[in-house]
Write a protein that binds this DNA or RNA. Structure first.
Lengths: 408, 408
DNA sequence: TGCACTTTGGCAACAGCGTTGCTTAAGTGG
DNA sequence: CCACTTAAGCAACGCTGTTGCCAAAGTGCA
């Protein structure tokens, strides 16, 4: 009695040396699956296991065990992936009484993606390799309200400068030196650009809506404009969703978690069963304007008793404990509604005093679980993203489909 | 640039004349897909389109168009389904200048499932055919607190009586007469029994937790016990989830909606992308104890300001308008968080004055959408289930996997 | 009535997927 | 040194959806 099937063959086909075939058939509603899609799905699945395994690598037999496929099938699939240059053999394991297992590893520099984070006052661009590691980074001041042309031109310029630099200089990274120097070719193969910015927007079509505070952007087809300007594929998403996607790539598993971002505003990115949940119109995650106090104080959105208003007011008057309690109440509502396994906190306000928020939110969740008579409480942690977290997540908008975690 | 893949081959394999092969491979984590799973997925997909088409039927070419498969592939698949007795040819369409299309239709009585609804004070059993239509029904008084043995025995007895009656007498239904009299054989092929009851519980293993008010059930392996007693497969789920599943079967599409049930308590069933969202531990949908009034009045759960407490208190003092407003606030929170496309209301309290609740909840949602500057508000409607809605949804716990909408 | 045309749907051959059966490679342990 | 174990590839196979072709069954015009 074992489940089976389940896939998602990736939206960005035909890249990276013919990986991911796609069907060529028209697709209305739910798609039938043909052999090309099957091949693509299994390939992506194994690629994802290789990615998750990291530098340690993983053997063919372990892949077979994890996927339920035959060892022979795994051999064939990995042979294809090796021929495509995505995978290499990398040493052997210790023998357990027979021929030692050959370790397979993802080739990080077989592909790259650009992640672009457009915040209200600054811009961050990163170049990530297949593993999601940052290979190059740039940061610049930018005013989102400066007009679309200026913003597009500024962003495109930064992206081009990043790629230019990356193709010449090996690596110039703040955090760490690159573990393995990139290969010979002077040009870096790039899948495209993922853009993350404050919502609301339409992820599917890459069109912006009324970005809070900057009505000028309403209806702007960011995806199309930037794709034409840069000459490569572009995917657009909300900053909170990108952050959540980036965290999902690290978390690895197919679990569920909520990423709560408390900065100048309050929003959430939801990951359900390993996939970012955006809803039908990319409106999911409107966490800041959840009402937790009927007829409470007026919020900027026009409603009363929103979490965001209560939280920010508490922070403004220095009562961080109370802010954490309010946030915790919202988190408890969310956990109760969705039964996620983990709550991650991020954003500048949280980073200012992380322990207070983790303790405060965790306390409310624990109390709630105790009342329900549930034992294993939902853990609360600070998101690991850091300053480039959102940009890295934006790059994942293009990387994730390769590993079978396509959106839609 | 078309999406592809995506499946779920059904948990209940090997039934109904060899449909749904399953792989036979062990499955850890995410599964690879082999040809058997592919066959099963495409078969289920086409079966689902046939189900959705209803008595009107659907032609092979339309199936090909909707699935993206070749007409020839559809011909082969439908030939298999016809050989299995699940599908028949049923007349022809009008010609459009050539050979007229042959209409295919699901054979309703090719399979049945029992849906059992254990409420606090009564029990409802239905027998549903493949289309989900009720073929037979029984209702009896039952006290959930009367002890596990009495409840199990009573429920099993009712199920057996229902099946006994159905195999002899064609149909005895309150609402309508059966459109097509069932076939010759005296025994009805039954997939199994779906059981719906108040939570919390573990859907995956079919084990009950601390059912509110009746602590005796904590840890009771309902699925295993009932399966052994009846000698057929049993699936257990929360009543709200079953109701939502039943509504999803009617809604048909792969959309998202929330079913809010307001009876003696308040709960929710969530359908996201056409699948019931239960969360990792079947705890999702804890809607009643969402806090919408910080430090509000004490709730039975021990917390303060829960929707359920506020709502029921308002109803108790006769202020239904206020109850609807509170419910609407919770619904708005839910819609904002998940971006569902539809809100359905049900339960005895709602059914007492449906217009007030629909108007009240809708009003809050409209106001919220107006503040956000969104145009197409989320529609609010009364759930169509009626008295047997939950039981029908319970039957869908076994029927849905056949149509590719497997859980987990 | 007859013929051209359109559309539907099946038959046969085919490419490609994962699977099975067997062989070779490469270790351990007595 | 040899028996044994484990890993991985080669070859043949069964089954999938696809392609090429043809028969069936209508419409519409002469």
């Amino acid at each position: 009695m074992n489940g089976n099937g389940n896939g998602g063959a990736g939206d960005l086909n035909g890249r990276l040396g013919g990986l991911n075939g796609g069907t060529g058939g028209r697709t209305v509603g739910v798609a039938g699956v043909n052999l090309l899609a099957l091949r693509s799905h299994n390939g992506a699945l194994i690629l994802d296991l290789l990615r998750t395994a990291g530098p340690a690598g993983i053997s063919r037999l372990e892949l077979a065990d994890r996927t339920g496929l035959t060892p022979q099938a795994v051999s064939k699939i990995t042979a294809r992936l090796r021929a495509d240059g995505l995978v290499t053999e990398a040493g052997q394991r210790a023998s357990t009484g027979g021929k030692p297992r050959t370790v397979l590893r993802l080739v990080p520099h077989a592909g790259h993606a650009v992640g672009l984070h457009l915040d209200r006052d600054e811009l961050t661009v990163v170049l990530c390799d297949l593993t999601g590691a940052v290979v190059a980074m740039r940061r610049a001041a930018l005013s989102l309200g400066a007009g679309s042309e200026a913003v597009i031109e500024g962003a495109a310029g930064e992206v081009e400068a990043l790629l230019e630099g990356a193709s010449r200089v090996p690596v110039d990274l703040e955090t760490e030196a690159a573990p393995t120097p990139p290969p010979g070719p002077s040009t870096v193969p790039v899948l495209g650009v993922g853009v993350a910015l404050p919502g609301p927007l339409d992820h599917l079509h890459g069109v912006l809506h009324r970005v809070t505070g900057i009505p000028e952007w309403d209806g702007f087809p960011l995806r199309a404009v930037l794709a034409r300007r840069l000459g490569m594929p572009v995917v657009v998403d909300k900053d909170t969703n990108a952050a959540a996607l980036g965290l999902a790539a690290v978390t690895g598993g197919h679990g569920s978690f909520a990423y709560l971002h408390l900065g100048t505003g309050l929003g959430a990115g939801l990951v359900i069963d390993g996939r970012v949940h955006r809803g039908a119109r990319t409106r999911a995650g409107e966490f800041g304007h959840q009402v937790v106090q009927l007829d409470g104080p007026l919020c900027g959105c026009g409603n009363r008793g929103c979490i965001e208003a209560l939280c920010l007011a508490a922070v403004a008057r220095g009562d961080v404990e109370e802010a954490a309690r309010v946030l915790g109440t919202g988190a408890a509502n969310l956990v109760g509604l969705l039964d996620v396994e983990l709550v991650l906190l991020g954003g500048r306000t949280v980073e200012a005093c992380p322990e207070v928020f983790v303790r405060g939110v965790g306390g409310v969740l624990d109390e709630w679980a105790r009342l329900q008579g549930e034992d294993p409480q939902v853990p609360v942690r600070v998101a690991s993203g850091g300053a480039t977290g959102v940009a890295e997540g934006a790059a994942q908008l293009l990387l994730a489909p390769l590993f079978g975690r396509a959106d839609v």
